[in-house]
Nucleic acid binder design. Structure first.
Lengths: 198, 198, 198, 198
DNA sequence: AATGAATGAGTATTCATTCAT
DNA sequence: GATGAATGAATACTCATTCAT
């Protein structure tokens, strides 16, 4: 329905505004007024579409992580070889300094909350599962291609890969140097290759 | 002098209280009252020893990261072989579910702030540098022992190792399962071995 | 517009409440809660209409001094002779024990601040300029009527007149005797007459 | 006794420090710490010599006003003619831009308090009485010399003179221009002459 | 006498949330 | 649907005062 659609659009608009505001300010420093300003709506509207500030942020985490996953999934799907998929995965994880900075700032806020609040943890777990499925797919294809040892356990390797990606991107974020983004990407890719024994 | 010492002790007492409070609550959810309560002093005392809430937290980050480093450094120093040092490093990074949870909750809060505020970033950078020096020491010894390929670049590998450790511990933290701590430790150690080609 | 008007009304309501509260308590002893209570609004409302306590008080000084001037100006305008205007000026300056007490208590607070803070000083200067314009008008008319010596300098006499009025009203305020208000008024008027040589 | 004397000296030292601090900051902005700093003693000392912050300030008002009176009295006593005494009185009231600024800043703070608190009012009343006695002395001598009309009432004129002096010095203070100090002094003296019919 | 550590009451300010329009 | 005025709970911070040393 039009009504629903319009409503959904405004929700997305607010979520995106929340993402921008959150990326600029921290989790608690962000106010509903800032989110409303970014979305160019009145403060009341935010509460009209979301039950509370917490609700906005929970939904934002869901939206963000699923969007990230979809992009990574899409990038990997377009490649046919394990090597290609791997490069695509890393490449889409290290999408750009600007986007990585915006996302990881917010993601660190979320992880901090997730370490204390189960609701956030569950959302993050779905993200991890999705990431694991990507790595697993690559690994299994690699084994089929004969590039990756058949003894390598996907169950163990897949999380290691995500740990490396997140660990490297956090390290890069801490350097505050856009120029090093590419360096970290390469280093991460090489490390992942070593994990896969490629 | 006694006077000075007393003062320093109380500062430490407050910092430790802040650590406990911060680990329980998030960065912004923590109040000076909570910190004072944990330290069993009055609210005014916190302000007597620290200029502001921010000052407490900045100093806490310094204190925490240097303490972690010292423990890791100590553990590594006690070992003589590269393999021993590596196991000691990983072992002291994965010290225990309780301590890791307490620290990484707070550390994630700090990383989130560090992604926006240079002062925090600088402190974290010193921590990274210290961690790098540990990994580098292990790697160089490994090369001397002939266990590690002489072609391996410490400059590149050391950060990868820390990225893995942090990435794995964050993943473990998100599982909220003490029982998995050991699993993640082993997985991390194996992954680090692969990076070193051991 | 209605919206704007409503907003302005509430601002005035808060300013008047601030005046009452300030007159009762001193400048710093007054709290936003007291102002809110006098205005019969919640504490938050004061901050909704004014950026800070300081902003309320700055605006109050402007409002008060311009209101005093307007009343004096009005009273003088209604008279046609210099003698009549002079009596009207003094009469409206010595309006009543209650009002003079309320105003001069607050005004002394403001003068104390103005002696240190330029922003207050500027507002007071505008008030002085307005008072000077009233005295000057009376003096010039008196010269036209032949009552006042043509050699008398308005530039010098006008400030002297205000100095006398303020000086006398402060003295009266210090007596804390409503009954003496009229005495001080007469004494002030006679003194002003001597300055004008009437 | 030595003990008493020493004690009295320290009290004076603290009072003078309070005067300096008060002149710089406002009445409420001043803290006991600032007073202690100015007096180069510890915070505890202030409380050792004075029961409370209020007590310091009450005593300061007494000390200041009696000191001002003594200086004016002294200056007047040294002159023999009414004209000389008048000039000496005005001259010592307009002692210097620096001293007048320091005193009137503090005095306005005190007047603001005196308008609400009887204890301050009483101290100020003694000051007024002393000032009146000076003016009265001058006026009576003037009448004896035949310079001042015998019909002039000292009771009425003396307060007018003080009103002018205070009114003019407050006006000067509000200009924040040291250069205008002399202008205001002259204007005040001329105005006082007119009140005396000289 | 002197110190300064400790206390805690008090206050401005912020902001999520509510609700009348 | 949308607005923004109003609310009041929550909190960092200040500072006079106390008191052990």
């Amino acid at each position: 329905m039009v009504r629903y659609k319009k409503s959904e659009e405004k929700r997305k608009q607010i979520l995106y505004a929340a993402f921008q505001a959150l990326s600029g300010q921290g989790y608690d420093a962000v106010t509903l007024q800032m989110i409303a300003d970014h979305a160019q709506v009145s403060k009341g509207v935010v509460h009209y579409y979301f039950a509370s500030k917490e609700a906005v942020l929970i939904e934002l985490l869901e939206w963000l992580t699923s969007r990230i996953y979809l992009k990574e999934h899409e990038a990997v799907r377009e490649q046919e070889t394990a090597a290609g998929k791997l490069a695509a995965y890393i490449g889409s994880a290290f999408v750009s300094p600007e986007k990585n900075r915006a996302f990881y700032r917010v993601y660190l806020d979320f992880l901090a909350r997730a370490s204390r609040i189960p609701a956030y943890r569950e959302i993050n777990q779905r993200f991890y599962d999705n990431c694991t499925s990507i790595s697993t797919e690559i690994l299994l294809l690699g084994q089929k291609e004969g590039m990756v040892s058949p003894h390598l356990s996907a169950e163990q390797t897949a999380p290691q890969i995500r740990a490396l990606i997140d660990g490297c991107l956090i390290q890069w974020l801490m350097t505050d140097e856009d120029a090093l983004h590419e360096t970290y990407r390469q280093s991460c890719e090489e490390a992942v290759r070593k994990l896969l024994g490629i």
